[in-house]
Every structure is written in C-alpha cells, then in structure tokens.
Amino acid sequence: MILDRLGPRLIVMGPSNSGKSTLAQAIGRARGWPAVHLDQLHHRPGSDWVPRPAEEFAALHDAAILAEHWVMDGNYTRLLPQRLARATGLILLDVPTTTSLWRYLRRCWFETARAGALEGGRDSVKWDMLHHIAVTTRANRRRYAAMAVTLPVPVLRLTGAVALARFYRDEGLRR
C-alpha cells in the first residue's frame, strides 16, 4: 500500500477546495491517527474565517507536529519548514481550477457539515476567495509541483479527480 511507504506523519497539500481535508480525515480514520486541519488552527472557531494572531497559530501548529502520528492538511507555507522536519511523507493534490471553484461554491451554498470546517462557523461566498482560487492558485500549483521534487520525504502527487478516486479505492479509504 502506498500509505505504508509514506509513513506515520503525512502532509496533504494542494489548491483550495481540492479535497485536502476530506482526504486527511479519511486517512486518519483508516489509520487511527488524528487528522489536523490547519484551517481550524489558523482561524478562530465560530467566526467567518477570522485568523488567529500569527504567534498563536504557530504555537498550535508546532504543538500538533510533535505527535508521533498525524495527517495534516493545509498549505500555510510559512510554517512548512517545521512541518517538513517532522513529516514522513507528503500527498500533493492537483485538481483543475474549475473543480476547486465548484467545490467552494457547493460547500458555501449546500454543505452544512464537512471535514475541516470551523467549529460554529459557516462558509459564505467571498470575492477574495473566488479570486484566490481563480488567480492565485495557478501560481501556487506550479510552485508546489516544483517544490515536491526537491523534498527529502516521499511525495505522492494525485492529479485530477480520477487519480484521487483511484487512490481512495486502492487504499481502502472512505470519504
């Protein structure tokens, strides 16, 4: 199994709304590991995605990576060096921009409970997020792909929904 080769501390990165939190939760459930959603550490619970102070987020992040087993989703590249120092593997999701946009709108309009959601929070459509997905994510996607080939840990790159669905099936994961 591919998950066995990636080890007990996994990072899941990729574009916004690419399925990182859902995958992390599925892996955590299957392996009995905590799924750590960086969005939940970065933002205040019960808010409309209001960030915590940077030092508070960094303290929560650094405490979480000390565990022996975890699967952690989110990018937050400012803290990536600490995460990589403890990680044993990385899964990089790469879905089309249109998929990310659709998933964002779907979660804002139709989903009331989802992996990685803020406790007591509610997703709402924001122009900044639409812009981030449609514009900023393209450069990030290239940057993450270039970074992945230089990492000292095993990397699994899943490009597109078909590859992601195959991974779920082959690893016996449930969404």
Rank of each mutant, 00 (worst) to 15 (best):
R44G: 00
E56L: 09
I65R: 14
D73I: 03
R44C: 04
I65F: 08
T77Y: 04
T77G: 09
D48Q: 11
W49Y: 15
A63D: 12
L41F: 09
R52L: 00
I65C: 06
R52S: 03
A59T: 13
V50I: 13
L84D: 10
P45Q: 07
A67E: 11
H42P: 05
D48E: 15
S47A: 04
E68P: 09
H69P: 04
R78Q: 14
V50K: 01
R44I: 01
P51N: 05
L41T: 03
E68M: 06
H43V: 00
L84Y: 11
H42T: 02
L79Q: 13
A59L: 13
A58V: 08
M72W: 03
L60E: 10
A64E: 11
Q82H: 15
L41M: 13
D73P: 03
E68K: 15
R78K: 14
S47Q: 03
E68V: 09
L66V: 11
Q82Y: 12
P81S: 11
R44V: 01
H69W: 14
E68R: 15
G74T: 04
A54P: 11
P81H: 14
E55M: 05
P53A: 15
R52P: 00
L41Q: 06
A59E: 11
L84P: 05
P81Q: 14
L66G: 12
H69D: 10
G74K: 08
R44L: 06
E68T: 15
W49Q: 01
A58Q: 11
A59W: 10
F57R: 01
V50P: 01
P53H: 08
P45T: 07
S47W: 04
N75V: 12
I65M: 06
D62A: 14
G74I: 04
A67K: 07
V50W: 01
A67R: 14
G46T: 03
W70Q: 00
Q82T: 11
R52A: 02
L79H: 12
I65L: 15
V71I: 09
A58F: 06
D62G: 08
A58P: 02
P51T: 06
H42G: 00
I65G: 06
L79W: 09
D48K: 13
Q82E: 10
A54E: 10
